[in-house]
Amino acid sequence: MKRPWPRPDGDAGSALIEVRDLTKHFPIRSGVFGRTVGQIRAVDGVSFQVRRGETLALVGESGSGKTTAALSLLRLMEPTAGVVTFDGQNALTLDRPGLKRLRRKAQIIFQDPFASLNPRLTVGTMLREILHVHGLARGAAAEARVGELLALVGLHAADAMRYPHQFSGGQRQRIGIARALAVEPEFIIADEPVSALDVSVQAQVLNLLADLQRNLHLTYLFITHDLSVVRQIADRVAVMYLGRVVETGRCESLFESPRHPYTRALLAAVPVPEVRRTRSRVLLSGDIASPANPPPGCPFHPRCPHPDKDEICRTAVPGLRDVGGAGQAACHKA
């Protein structure tokens, strides 16, 4: 596969994106005058960095705030507070032209391959529009580029004439990837890109994403609830619970020796398609609390199975602390 755009500046391994104390609260309004009666703390002081060329997986269950965090990062949602630095620039204070430049560097792939494509446009029209808006190619050059993009994701140039509903789910996801690649980004947020696909098609898309990363030197922020996928594709992992990062670390070490009790429970809960073994399962009791009304202290303490759970867990919010290796965990007892 040829590389159609130059390698981005900066060394591999340096931080491309730095997120500090990102917070997104949604007001809960009530009454005739829309008085604010509370806050949904969707994202509550999240910090992480994504290094050039790596894949950081943001993992969490529903209500953990992972998608809100990602959308805030691209300013598809305005965060309440925090700093997002993209390639040394503060992304949250960009003006309109600056934002347009950001959107050439950072792109997003969505979960639902049916909802994420405009049903009225052919694939070619959709891609040409992007090339046109960003002044990347016109006329015959645009035509050639569309063919290139489709080839890049394993489709045929002739597919440009077809409409989204004429493709299968996996093919539509490829089209979604081609759309993201059209602006030649350095950074791609993949929001649950395979969860809506058939099992037998997921591997195709995961392999494609891995190939594209290698060939085009892309940096990924991979958002998912599926830990098996994380293990396969991520270099580093950040586990989120109720709007906070509770553990981060290198993928291998986090999966081999999780430090936070939530990570441990999460890993134990994943069903494995293998001959049944007697597994020592940590079953979590109860449900995830509502982000509108998070518990005081450690957000995880009401469900936490840790034997040493005590008063401090119920009162003080634990911060991320180094726990050896390159990992950090937000647990008083880790």
Binding site: Q171, V199, Q202, L206, V229, F255, V272, E274
Partner: peptide, 24 residues
């Protein structure tokens, strides 16, 4: 066989996932 080879595992990272070509 293909399904079992193509599903990522939480217990280990595979070098590359096997792929069932085509779609359902």
């Amino acid at each position: 066989e293909g399904l079992l080879r193509s599903i990522p595992r939480v217990t280990q990272k595979l070098r590359r996932l096997a792929v069932i070509p085509g779609s359902v």
